[in-house]
Design a protein around this nucleic acid. Structure first.
Lengths: 227, 227
DNA sequence: CCCCAATGTTGACACTGACAACATTATCTA
DNA sequence: TAGATAATGTTGTCAGTGTCAACATTGGGG
């Protein structure tokens, strides 16, 4: 992704061939493949942005930088994302969709509603740890402040998925004396907080040695006690 | 804070008077006071930055913008903060110091360690809600990624304060069967999560009507049950 | 093949951060 | 009190970024 590599890719822009919606350019004679397929820039931008996010953080992310990395003109990304804010909303939205999918998958085949809840909690924290780039976008206050409708909808869907699981657990008799809304907010709070602590390098550093698997299970026990 | 206002303030730069370390310039003849005292720019920058943070978010914050707002030359802020990252670290560090102070204050005069813990939890969440600008800096993944030693120390101090409170509570017999580290991580997780949910506008919106006082108390009951 | 929409390019401009040289203010010491 | 030095603020310049508009290329449909 050096500037030198970008120069090579620019030369590949000229020869246009192929047909159908699979616009794959032939590898350049000098070796190296084009960084994206014409018409698939949006996906390439998202993908590259997530990498930059993980390596350097949000402030260092720029549309021009992405354009350079992918060998397109500096204003091309603006065809897909009006501005950086829209790009970040898309990343966070994608993140929530993946988080929701991971959470939902964890509950599949689990009979008891309480055990489903526990499995979902585990999956959420583990997902945040394994997808720090996405999670850093999801937890960015500015991204939330300027969230577009797609991001709002994705977060709403995630909330609904988990909230429903809490309702089912209480319906099965779990924590009958607590108000459902309180249980739900509590569960979300613990999940968000644990995800931050276990995924953010600074927090991890300051909390000292964290035996992830053991601690996460202990916390699940505290949040969702099984009598 | 318009450019026009900046022009007026620039005119006030010329007459230097007064003595001692209280360098207050006389109000301009046309009205309006200078935005900062010479030598007190650092404080003025921090103060103004927190306002911008709250009104527009981090991305919109710029050193040049602050310089303009305060009527100083564009590069003056760099005398106090090498870059934006340093400014944000300072804000987050100040935030943690205030959060720690609020948390500590809430525990004063409370006899029982468990009640102290509950009071501290309440104070933390309430503080985040009342200081959204600071909390948005504190919770910004980039700010944490590029935290300077001052910020790291402030976060460490906050963690130590609360962790100690958990240790005292368990020492008094609270939750004897749980491992202390798990209780502490759990408590921090719940606090961080609740603070995010109750302070972030997007989260508040999607979680629907939140009866703050009641819910916070219910969550405290779930995190720190009193038998 | 032609038309039009989608997508990508180019050039220009305003804004931001960074840097260096210079200017002003504040502090300290003899 | 004067002089030296440090701290602080100013000015100008340059590179990088976002934004905009006009233009060019690619893709899809009739």
């Amino acid at each position: 992704m050096s500037g030198k590599m970008s120069d090579k890719i620019s030369d590949e822009t000229k020869p246009h061939g192929g047909a159908g919606d699979e616009k794959i350019l032939a590898p350049a004679a000098e070796g190296g493949a084009r960084k994206y397929h014409h018409g698939a820039l949006r996906e390439a931008l998202l993908e590259r942005a997530v990498v930059i996010l993980g390596e350097q953080g949000i402030e260092k992310l720029s549309l021009r930088g992405l354009a350079r990395d992918l060998g397109v003109s500096h204003a091309a990304p603006a065809r897909h994302f009006a501005n950086k804010g829209e790009l970040l909303s898309a990343i966070a939205s994608e993140g929530y969709q993946r988080l929701t999918a991971a959470t939902t998958k964890a509950a599949v085949g689990v009979e008891s509603a309480v055990e489903r809840l526990r499995a979902m909690g585990r999956a959420s924290v583990r997902w945040a740890m394994d997808n720090r780039s996405f999670y850093s976008a999801i937890m960015n206050p500015d991204v939330n402040r300027y969230a577009d409708p797609g991001l709002t909808a994705s977060l709403q869907a995630y909330i609904a998925t988990v909230a429903e699981a809490f309702a089912e657990a209480q319906h099965e008799g779990w924590q009958p004396r607590s108000r459902l809304q309180a249980l739900q907010i509590f569960g979300f709070a613990a999940t968000i907080g644990a995800s931050v602590i276990f995924s953010d390098p600074l927090h991890r550093k300051l909390f000292g040695n964290l035996d992830d698997e053991k601690l996460i299970e202990e916390i699940i026990d505290l949040v969702i006690p099984v009598e």
